[in-house]
Amino acid sequence: MANWLNDVALGDLPLTGIACACLILWHVWTVVRLRSRFKSQLGAAQDVNVRLSDELEQSEAAYDDVAWALAQSEAEIAELAALVDRLKEGIARLEQLAAYERAEAPTIRADRQPELLRHAGQMADDVAGLKGVAMVFERWHDEMSSLMVQNRDMHAKNDELASIVNQVAMLALNAAIEAARAGAAGRGFTVVATEVRALARRCEALARDYSVSLHKNDMTTTATFQDIQAGGKMMMAAISGLELMATQLRAKLD
């Protein structure tokens, strides 16, 4: 280095020109190299963004599925309410018959016996038919089970989304550091990196919100699922009790 400076001092102007040209070339090469690194980082960030969009789309679709399944559950709850009404009607008719039997059975005229027997038989058949409600409960059980599986799938997708968002944030941070090191040449990339970081922060908040919604969904879905399941067992037990009463009534009248 000292020799080179001495040479310059000696006025070796052509050599100085070559050195300057080399310096300029070195700077140009540095800028080209940085551009290429930024391009590759930007490309990676774009890839991650595409994956992020895909994941978001998939999550939204899964969320729609759950909303649809919940709407189905509501319709089925209405169906359950209708069944409960039918059950109540059956209970009322049975109670009427039982009250009649208690109050008037000793004085039933022989000519009314066949009519009462027919009513009691019809009652027993109705109640036995109601036991078919077990099939409805089985159906709901299967549907609710698939809903729970979907919930688990959505949790997995959301975890994947959160992991991608973390990668995006890291990439954006690296890009910002590289851009700062490049000085004026990296100014444009600094803007891009800052925007990508802002997007990553928004995605992070979205994934967090999504996770909260999923846990809330888990609690309400599971509680509803269990209520339907327990309610189904309660109704089956009640129907079995009614069936026994109806059979006993028919046997008494027979």
Binding site: H215, K216, D218, T222, F225, Q226, D227, Q229, A230, A238
Partner: peptide
């Protein structure tokens, strides 16, 4: 008239 469900596990973050 009562009925009972089967057990189910949830994440504690649902609490």
């Amino acid at each position: 008239h009562l009925g009972m469900s089967v057990p189910y596990f949830l994440d504690s973050r649902c609490m």
